[in-house]
Write a protein that binds this DNA or RNA. Sequence first.
DNA 1: TATTGTTATACTCTATAACTATA
DNA 2: TATAGTTATAGAGTATAACAATA
Lengths: 148, 148
Amino acid sequence: MPDRTLQELHSTAPNPVEDLLGYHIRRASAVILSDLNLSLGEIGLTVTEATVLMFIESRDGITQSELGRHLSIKRANMAPLTANLTRRGLVDRSQADGRSQLLRLTTEGQIAARETRSRVTQHDRKLCSTLSQKQRQALIQQLETIWR
Amino acid sequence: MPDRTLQELHSTAPNPVEDLLGYHIRRASAVILSDLNLSLGEIGLTVTEATVLMFIESRDGITQSELGRHLSIKRANMAPLTANLTRRGLVDRSQADGRSQLLRLTTEGQIAARETRSRVTQHDRKLCSTLSQKQRQALIQQLETIWR
DNA sequence: TATTGTTATACTCTATAACTATA
DNA sequence: TATAGTTATAGAGTATAACAATA
């Protein structure tokens, strides 16, 4: 029998976090965020801004708070986000009623959104390159049950 | 045939990020981080601090920079982290040579590390509750290929 | 020369509280 | 009363640059 410590007999992990699913999700998320921010940084966007842009693209006229609810971004953090995109000429805001803001992409915003989608899908394709379509779907479904 | 827009014919997703693996990993990571920070906050630790504590526990006398390399935490960010844990009496630092710091848990740190491990493993068990052991291993392996 | 540790600093994302205005 | 939006502020995590001391 090989020379092993008691701890090693109880765990196959070379370190105390290797066996934790949460740890690997966190690490994967960090790498993904970093990589994608590198690509999106070339067009002056963060991942968060890109997600917002893509969402508005597909839901023209969505309100700010509704968008925030979909992405779990709080009102207080949503405000400067859209204000910034508006200031940069990518998003157009108009009143729905006295409270709500309708969000739409400007022409420039539409161009940015297309480029964004291209970069994001390319990045995600690389991410899934080692997975079969079936594996990918299963993986997404498992992750979705975690956060939803 | 049901009334569907062109976009819906091309994508089964109700929103433009639903189909992205990276999106779901990010969302899952955020929820995990938030939940675990809630539990660890009760004993005055963040997830990052807890990870560091657990790592030192299993690698008594590891150097600060080595620890940083394992967790991908930069030197510049490692310094205040360990300084803080030392100040709070959980970690003990001693010179290895003129440069390196050997990190060890104090008695108080060992107690905290045990409690930390208990809370972290409990959290992770809940996370994996819907998965079989085989699914869990496969999931971890897939995530590991992404970040490593 | 490369490595270790430290400090200063900036940026992103997130969280809460307080406020105005509107439904 | 509940909702929408805003502002201010704080905290956690990460990134770079610059520096001193040591291998």
